[in-house]
Amino acid sequence: MKSKAHILVVDDEEDIRELVKYNLEREGHRVTCAGSGESAVEIARRDQVDLIVLDLMLPGIDGLEVTRTLKTSPETAAIPILMLSAKGEEADIVTGLELGADDYVPKPFSPRELLARIRAVRRRSGKSQEKTAIDDALLLGEIEIRPGMVQVKVSGEPVELTFSEFSLLLLLARRPGWVFTRSQIVDGVRGDNYAVTDRSVDVIVAGLRKKLGGCSGYVETVRGIGYRFKDV
């Protein structure tokens, strides 16, 4: 992964655009700014953009529509998107994540937090799920997952999980740091012989954390959104 990136910053407030631009340029990134959703889509299609910092509340085409447009277009679908959202927009955040956005930062935000989130998104997008060893095992901190054997070890000791718990853990662990909404978890975990609902996701997580013991903190709650596996 290159240390420098071309980042598109989209916000209708000039002060915010300049603040984000200043901090990104200090880290050596090349920054292009846009004040509307229409111009953001045009730039993303025209230029080689490595990441987009996208405000949800935009005049004309809003951030959700920008995300939908870019993520359904083959030439722009792979561009990571980090959303900026004001308080009270939890429903929009969930929608954005389900449309394919990679993460979000609530306003007001600190430049330090924003830079950290951008680095994390770039790190995840710049590598596939290659925290693996021989025979497709996922090695994440103290947790070892062997999908083919449906086996989990914590600090070297085997842990017995239900099929739902194992499926949920594997779903999250394959994309560390990625926020999954409850409905995404339902789609990823449910099978032909058992049912998973939005409400039961919380129950499955509670049981999983209990069995993970000292590693329970690896499964993080993203308040109002869903869950993610700690990016270790």
Rank of each mutant, 00 (worst) to 15 (best):
A133P: 01
A133D: 14
A133H: 08
I134L: 07
I134F: 11
D136F: 08
L138A: 01
L138N: 07
L139Y: 01
L140E: 08
G141H: 02
G141W: 00
G141Q: 11
E142D: 11
E142N: 11
E142S: 07
I143E: 00
I143C: 08
E144V: 09
E144K: 13
I145K: 09
I145L: 09
R146H: 09
R146D: 04
P147H: 12
P147S: 08
G148H: 11
G148E: 15
M149I: 03
M149K: 15
M149T: 04
M149Y: 08
V150Q: 15
Q151V: 03
Q151H: 14
V152T: 06
V152M: 05
V152Y: 03
V152E: 10
K153Y: 03
V154S: 13
V154K: 12
V154A: 06
V154G: 06
V154H: 09
S155P: 04
G156T: 06
G156F: 07
G156Q: 10
E157N: 14
P158T: 11
V159N: 04
V159F: 05
V159S: 04
E160S: 10
E160G: 07
L161F: 10
F163S: 12
S164M: 13
E165R: 03
E165C: 08
F166L: 03
S167W: 00
L168A: 07
L168P: 05
L169W: 00
L169V: 02
L169N: 02
L170A: 12
L170H: 15
L172N: 04
L172F: 02
A173N: 11
A173R: 13
R174C: 02
G177E: 05
W178A: 13
F180P: 06
T181C: 09
R182P: 02
S183G: 01
S183Y: 09
S183D: 10
Q184E: 13
Q184K: 15
Q184D: 05
Q184F: 03
I185R: 01
D187Y: 13
D187E: 14
G188A: 11
G188F: 12
V189T: 04
V189E: 05
R190P: 09
G191K: 11
G191C: 04
G191P: 11
D192K: 14
N193W: 13
N193D: 15
N193E: 15
Y194C: 07
A195E: 14
V196M: 11
V196F: 04
T197V: 05
S200M: 09
S200L: 10
D202S: 13
D202A: 05
D202G: 10
V203F: 03
V203I: 10
V203H: 02
I204P: 07
I204H: 00
V205M: 05
V205I: 12
A206F: 00
A206T: 07
A206L: 08
A206K: 15
G207D: 01
G207F: 00
G207P: 11
G207E: 01
L208S: 06
L208K: 01
R209C: 05
K211Q: 11
K211R: 15
G213Y: 03
G213N: 14
G214R: 14
S216Q: 13
G217T: 06
